[in-house]
Every structure is written in C-alpha cells, then in structure tokens.
C-alpha cells in the first residue's frame, strides 16, 4: 500500500521554479527522509501535502486521497509538524493538545502526550512563553494525537538541543514500530542517516536522487573525503587521481592550495601515493566524513 504518491509535481511562482517535476512514492511503514539544503523546495513539497500551496502541475495523493481535492480526508490520517507555524500565544500547552484532540475526534489523555514529548511540567503555562524548542515539542505532541498512520515532520529538530534531537529520533522510531509511516525533511545528513529507511535528495527544486542510505553511500564511494594540502599542483594530476580505483571525484579547492577527493576508505593511501608519484609535495593531510554538501555535489554534477 502506498502512503504518499507524488506525481510530476511542479510549483512555479512567476518565473521562479520551486519544484520541478518531482515524483516519488513512499510505502506504508517506511521512514522516509527528505533531504536538501535550505531553499531546495522541501517545505513547498510538504505545504502541497497539506494543501497550503497548490501545485502548478502534477498531483499528490496520500492514502489514495488527492491532497488538493480531499485534503481533509488525507489529513485525517496524518499527524503534522509543519514549518513556519506559530503557536497560540494565549493558550496553554494542554489547551493546544485538547484542541488537537477535538479536531481529530480522538480520545486521548493530553498529559500523557505532553509527558512523552517531555514538556509535562509546562503543560499549564501559556505557550506564548515557550522557547522555540518547547513549542516544537508541543506541536509534535499535537501531531501524535490520534495515532496517525502518517507522520509528516518538517525540519523537526529545529530549535532542539542535541538531547531533544535524540528524543525526537526515539519518538520517530517508536511511531514507526507502532506501524506508522514517517516522512521527515531535514537539511542535516546525520539525522536522516540515523533513522531513515530511504532518502530522497531535493536540490534546487529537482529530485536529485532517491535511494537507501547505504545505496547513497555506496555510490558515493564509501563517503570519505580527503583534504590534502599541497604546494603546487598541475590540473592534469587530478584526472589521474580520478582514474584510480575507488575514487569518486577529485577537485581543487577554491584557493587552489588543497586537493579535495571523495573516495572509498581503502583508496585513501592510493591517492597519497599517486600524488607523490606525480611529484606533488604533500604538506598536510586530513580525512572527513563526506558532508551532505559533497553528496549534493556528487548528485548535482559538482556545483563548485
């Protein structure tokens, strides 16, 4: 059974294209990470799920309900942590959750939910006085009302401290174990990596890749990035490095002082040897995990 079906969706604002013919499906029970830098169009996509924004073309359906024509039916099975919301300043946390319970005709204990997201103590304080992180937890509690079959979380860890982010992950895992489908967007690779079954990468409004984390890493060549400080290098050497086994990409940094290489773990030494063979002086050497940015570079043809 398909939870989310996105078909050929575009959204244009005048000449600006926020989404360009995006299509993918999310199966029921999956944890799907929607990855992309800020401004890639992630929130636009989620706003289309919620019918806050109407697509210029294409259709989105959730559990078989078209989001534009039967949005409220789709939302009946959804719990949402939207982006760009704000809470009702004059209502307490508990009143917020009660509102959510009324809205979904659910029958739940508000305090239990607030406890689960860790703001039980603040339940009877006005939400206007909440910090960003507390507000985020509160809205998560509202999203959990009624045991939704699909959780849509837009940048859920915004405003949360590392501890909060970990709790968020726990909740996501618990919900998934309960049988819920989880769709969440983020611009931070680690979060997605930690919990997601599958990832879609959105870049400049286009779906650049869609795969499992392992699949992505594999196609990234193990996901290690080398930074080698050199004194003087000929551009031609980069080509010979790229031709090495296990090397994905090699390029010169902006100041021309460093060679940056993405490659598999095993190939690290080969790269340094190759540089030495080519007569290049290596003065410093560093390895990084491949950052999301490098991943995008790999998937979008290297925008640097």
């Amino acid at each position: 059974m398909v939870a989310i079906q996105v078909e050929n969706v575009s959204k244009r604002y005048g000449t600006l294209t926020a989404l360009d013919r995006v299509g993918f499906t999310v199966e029921e029970g999956e944890i799907f990470g929607f990855l992309g830098p800020n401004g890639a169009g992630k929130s636009t996509m989620i706003n289309i799920f919620l019918d806050f924004v109407r697509p210029t073309e294409g259709t989105v359906s959730i559990f078989g309900h078209n989001c534009q024509q039967e949005g409220h039916l789709a939302r009946e099975r959804m719990g949402v942590l939207p982006e760009g919301y704000s809470v009702y300043d004059r209502l307490t946390g508990r009143q917020h959750v009660e509102f959510a319970i009324n809205s979904k005709d659910a029958d739940e204990e508000p305090m239990k939910l607030l406890e689960r997201v860790g703001i039980r103590d603040a339940a009877d304080r006005k939400a206007g006085g909440y910090s960003k992180g507390m507000a985020q937890r509160l809205v998560l509690a509202m999203a959990l009302v009624g045991k939704p079959d699909l959780l849509i979380l837009d940048e859920p860890t915004t405003g949360l401290d590392p501890n909060g982010a970990r709790e968020m992950r726990t909740i996501i895992t618990e919900e998934s174990e309960r049988g819920a489908t989880v769709f969440f967007s983020s611009h931070i690779l680690e979060q997605v990596e930690a919990v997601c079954d599958r990832v879609g990468i959105l870049y400049q409004g286009e779906l650049a890749a869609i795969d499992t984390i392992e699949g992505l890493r594999e196609s990234m060549g193990g996901g290690t990035k080398l930074q080698i400080t050199v004194n003087d290098i000929d551009e031609g050497v980069l080509d010979s490095i790229e031709s090495l086994d296990g090397v994905e990409n090699a390029w010169l940094s902006n100041d021309g002082r460093k060679v940056e290489v993405t490659c598999s773990n095993d190939a690290k030494l080969d790269v340094v040897i190759a540089l030495d063979d080519a007569g290049v002086d290596v003065s410093d050497f560093r390895t990084d995990e491949a950052s999301l940015e490098d991943m995008f570079a790999a998937y979008t043809g290297g925008s640097r």
Binding site: E76, Y85, S86, V87, S103, A143
Partner: peptide
C-alpha cells in the same frame, strides 16, 4: 500573519470548517 493557521489547518479541517 502569525502562522498559527498552519497549525490549525494541519489537522483534518477543511478551510470551510
């Protein structure tokens, strides 16, 4: 203007509701 509508409408209310 304040954005609370995003919260209210993320629940299964139609805009008419």
């Amino acid at each position: 203007e304040s954005g609370t509508i995003a919260l209210a409408l993320s629940f299964p209310h139609t805009r008419a509701d």
